[in-house]
Amino acid sequence: MKRLLPVVVMTLLLAGCATWVKTEGRLTSAGQQFTVDPPQGWMRRNSDSLFVITRDGFPLQTILISRMKISEEKQFRHTTKRVTAGMLPNEIAEVIIDDFQSDPDRPVDAVEENVPADVGGKKGSLVRLAYTTKTGLKFRCQIYACLCGGWLYRVSYLAPARYYFDKDLPTVQNMMKTFVINAT
């Protein structure tokens, strides 16, 4: 997901139809079949498969909500491991961690947390990682993931480790309490 960010930025900047809107009230995605109460007053932009939410800009804090069909040929950028139907939450977490750890440009400093979590009403996992970017900036990333009906849902929160991550983490945690996957 960390490597996805520049692509996300470019895609959204180039997509003429997508515009930044201020988050207000409940966000319902009929296409991705979820509802969530995003942090109010932040900025949101979305494509068909990805929702990006930030308050101060991408480099400072980003929430990404996405879902991916598990039949997709290339699921992850750095690992060729796959998430498959019937995987246990810890197995999904393992693939997500392995994808991060296979990126030679951004070495993972630590897997700080890897625990079961309720994700949108489904059995899922919560992974928290610390990594360093090419320019030496330390980042932390918290990923919620679960499988639902052939889809992998992920909500990721990325921010610089110093100051920013902790600052907005409670907001993200509160948002996750409102996240509901409507698909079965």
Binding site: H78, T79, T80, K81, R82, D98, Q101, S102
Partner: peptide
């Protein structure tokens, strides 16, 4: 171990 992580 690295190969396993990368799916090899």
């Amino acid at each position: 171990e690295m190969d396993l992580r990368a799916g090899r």
